[in-house]
């Protein structure tokens, strides 16, 4: 199975290039300042940094949920910052996103939440009648098994535990069969053990499908354990970029500690 998928997907260039990205919500107060980043077509990149460093904004710029102010984000040969309307939606469906907790549609079943991942492809009448193509439903069941929730298809999302929700969130992103996976603090409200399980699941599933992943994460140990590359952000700019082994205490001081006495 892995062979078939990787053969089919090797052809697509899954790398992401961000050049001189700026984002400001209020003029003169940039959240992102001149962020440039090249992410190859594989592996996990962890973005670490304190709250307010701009990690979430960076991720949200990549799939256009937060429109960039200046700069370029090149994926699939297109500049995402220039897209809008239908073209932007077509780009979004190539990019899966795992959100912070409570992003499942609470009143829908687990299966419906997974099928939400196909909404970029199905017409409204199918969504209305829940008549998704059989291949989508089959794919959803495969993913449910992969995340260990095969008996939960008809359970409503509001009945799930935090860890279960995030598993479903990951599966929903993978339902899109994305070429890039974004995760915005996926473990922020989970207990430490569940947090490890969720990142591990994310890493395994992304690796087996050969999808590059960018994960925002608070927990430095988790980042070091699962990521092949770590990007440190502080005050809207990148202050560290390298493999986990190169991340030393002085960098951490720069990323996290730097804030308290600079203010």
């Amino acid at each position: 199975m892995n062979l078939a998928i990787s053969a089919a997907t090797m052809a697509i260039d899954r790398s992401l290039v961000i050049r001189h990205l700026y984002k400001e919500y209020t003029v003169g107060k940039p959240i992102l300042r001149d962020v440039s980043l090249e992410i190859g077509g594989r592996g996990i990149t962890a973005i670490i940094g304190p709250s307010g460093a701009g990690k979430s904004t960076l991720i949200r710029c990549v799939n256009g949920l937060a429109p960039a102010t200046r700069g370029e984000i090149i994926f699939h040969g297109e500049d995402i910052t220039k897209l809008s309307g239908k073209r932007l939606r077509e780009m979004r469906r190539r990019i899966g996103m795992v959100h912070q907790e409570y992003s499942l549609v609470e009143r829908l079943s687990v299966m419906e939440n997974l099928l939400t991942g196909r909404l970029g492809y199905v017409p409204a009448w199918r969504a209305w009648l829940r008549k998704f193509p059989e291949s989508d439903v089959a794919h959803a069941y495969t993913l449910l098994e992969a995340i260990g929730l095969e008996d939960f298809a008809n359970r409503r999302a509001d009945q799930l535990s935090g860890g279960q929700r995030q598993r479903v969130g990951i599966a929903r992103a993978l339902m899109q069969e994305p070429d890039l996976l974004l995760a915005d603090e996926p473990t922020s409200s989970l207990d430490p053990k569940t947090a490890v399980e969720i990142i591990e699941l994310l890493a395994t599933l992304a690796a087996s499908r050969d999808i590059p992943a960018i994960i925002n994460i608070h927990n430095v140990d988790l980042a070091k354990r699962f990521a092949s590359r770590i990007v440190g952000m502080a005050k809207g700019a990148i202050v560290f970029d390298g493999p986990p082994s190169a991340l030393e205490d002085k960098h951490l001081g720069e990323i996290y500690g730097g804030q308290s006495w600079l203010e």
Binding site: M1, M111, R130, V137, A138, Y141, T142, A146, A153, N154
Partner: peptide, 14 residues
């Protein structure tokens, strides 16, 4: 993964 799973029929409600 087994083929049987692919034949699941899914319906929204009981």
């Amino acid at each position: 993964m087994s083929g049987a799973i692919g034949q699941h029929r899914w319906q929204r409600f009981s």
